[in-house]
Nucleic acid binder design. Structure first.
Lengths: 203, 203
DNA sequence: ACATTTGTCAACCATTTGGTTAAACTAAAT
DNA sequence: ATTTAGTTTAACCAAATGGTTGACAAATGT
């Protein structure tokens, strides 16, 4: 049994809400539009999820929980740093190519309401960087990688993997690439990003 | 004479609108709030800028025109690639530390309305990558930098400089940093980012 | 001095929007 | 058959919102 999704009204609504919220953001999304997408009456939204705010929270947490495991992987897996970087880059890019609105949705709403992060941290499975930090410091001490703090390296890994999706409209414009060409570029990044990072830190 | 800003009603409104639009985004921003911020009657907004949509466009173009010159610099300056990367990283991070809402605002609204990019491309001063491309290809051919396409390198430079600001709330959460500590991290990135990139490409 | 344009405002308006209600429907339990 | 609990809907509501109007003041030109 895999993580198959039951077809309950709650799930039906949640999926419709995901679609709309992720495309338009909290403020621009309309309850009526979500109801239409779900093929139900608007009152049902309030019956199952009391308010727009609560429905949004459910969507947000569900979206975030799809990303958290991948971040935990890079933090806590029992592999070398280089393997972690390779795995994360490849897996993350594959994942986002399937869910293109997700990263922007998360980032956008966290910027709108930064206190929301505290909420997420309280959840179990919130990624913890401490193990990754030890590992980086160790490898720096051993002279295997150039001196760099774990924080900066972590930010760099996240930046190189996430930004190309969030900034896609802008980057497509600069590069004069259409959707097709840009997607090919992203495919290549599955390996190029990790090569880039590893070249940057390897001595 | 520098680019001093005249205190016309138009400018007054535009600045107030920038403040509100950048903090909340188009959909969540309220015309009344912009009027309050500008210290004028709501009807004045419509007198000077016919509609919310047009006021937003004015704000967006003004915001984008603050970033474009810096991008042109990395594309077209008469310096070596390494100097360009160093200059851009340092200048861009300094700039954004002063205007923290700007990058997220641009990215967020371009994602909301991707066709907007076509509008921007038509403007003069829209950054053009062709010169940078030639330069990268040349240096790769000369064996000075590792084989990489100009597009991928460009995306990497943009990602490493821009994402740490857009993703700040999330990254602060992961790293468990407060605003103060995070800002210090960004200060350090003025040089660390370019070192990282140069290490990644230099042979 | 007078007329005309330009700027400013409080009050108003039509529409949209999140949310509620009361009644109707369904299906299982008694 | 009747009760009961859960589900669904159309109609409704109050508040918020972008936008307008008409009266009035302040410049501006003649």
């Amino acid at each position: 049994m895999t993580t198959e999704e039951q077809s309950t009204p709650e799930n039906n609504i949640l999926n419709a809400a995901k679609e709309i919220f992720q495309k338009k953001g909290m403020a621009a999304a309309r309850m009526q539009e979500i109801a239409d997408e779900a093929g139900i009456n608007k009152a049902m939204l309030h019956y199952y999820y009391r308010s727009k705010e609560l429905l949004f929270e459910a969507v947000f947490k569900s979206a975030f929980s799809m990303l958290a495991p991948q971040l935990n992987e890079i933090m806590n897996a029992d592999t070398t740093i280089f393997e972690k970087i390779r795995n994360f880059s490849s897996n993350y890019i594959s994942f986002v190519l399937k869910h293109p609105y997700l990263p922007n949705f998360i980032i956008q709403e966290l910027n709108r309401n930064p206190e929301f992060v505290k909420n997420l941290i309280a959840e179990k499975n919130f990624p913890n960087i401490s193990k990754f930090k030890l590992q980086v410091n160790e490898k720096v001490a051993e002279g295997i990688i150039r001196p760099i703090t774990a924080e900066q390296l972590f930010i760099n890994i996240m930046s190189l993997n996430i930004f190309p999706f969030i900034g896609a409209p802008l980057l497509k414009g600069f590069l004069n690439f259409d959707d097709e060409a840009y997607k090919k570029l992203m495919e290549k990044r599955k390996t190029e990003v990790s090569d880039f990072i590893i070249n940057a830190v390897k001595i």
